[in-house]
């Protein structure tokens, strides 16, 4: 677990390893992790707020605050605290939205 990480695993560490990608870089999680856990056991933020562009890392973990929505590379939205990590998931922590792109 990186020094960078926010979350600290304290049990259940013999679960299956799940490879995934975040912003193109490979990373690993454990089966049964939420996307938020998968990210925050490596890093300390999952997105930037829209207006002030400040780092955010979720808040409620129960689908109430909506402050952990991120993206998959194919443009889908993921609420990180309430979505399970899946093998080879390709996640983005920055908006891929480019309104100007043709369809």
């Amino acid at each position: 677990m990186d020094e960078q990480s926010l979350f600290l695993r304290v049990a259940e560490q013999d679960r299956e390893i799940v490879p995934f990608f975040v912003n193109g870089r490979p990373a690993t999680a454990l089966s049964g992790d939420t996307v938020l856990t998968a990210l925050l056991t490596h890093d300390h933020e999952v997105r930037l707020s829209e207006i002030l562009e400040q780092p955010r890392a979720g808040f409620c973990l129960m689908g109430a605050c909506q402050d952990c929505w991120i993206w998959t590379e194919d443009g889908k939205r993921v609420r990180a605290c309430s979505t399970m990590i899946e093998p080879d998931m390709r996640l983005r922590t920055r908006s891929p939205f480019n309104g100007a792109r043709p369809e």
Binding site: V10, T34, T37, A57, C60, L61
Partner: peptide
């Protein structure tokens, strides 16, 4: 980052062992 609700802190532990 690093500030969570009490409920959230509990969920991290109960649900994610973190």
């Amino acid at each position: 980052p690093g500030v969570y609700t009490l409920g959230g802190a509990q969920i991290a532990l109960k649900y994610q062992a973190c």
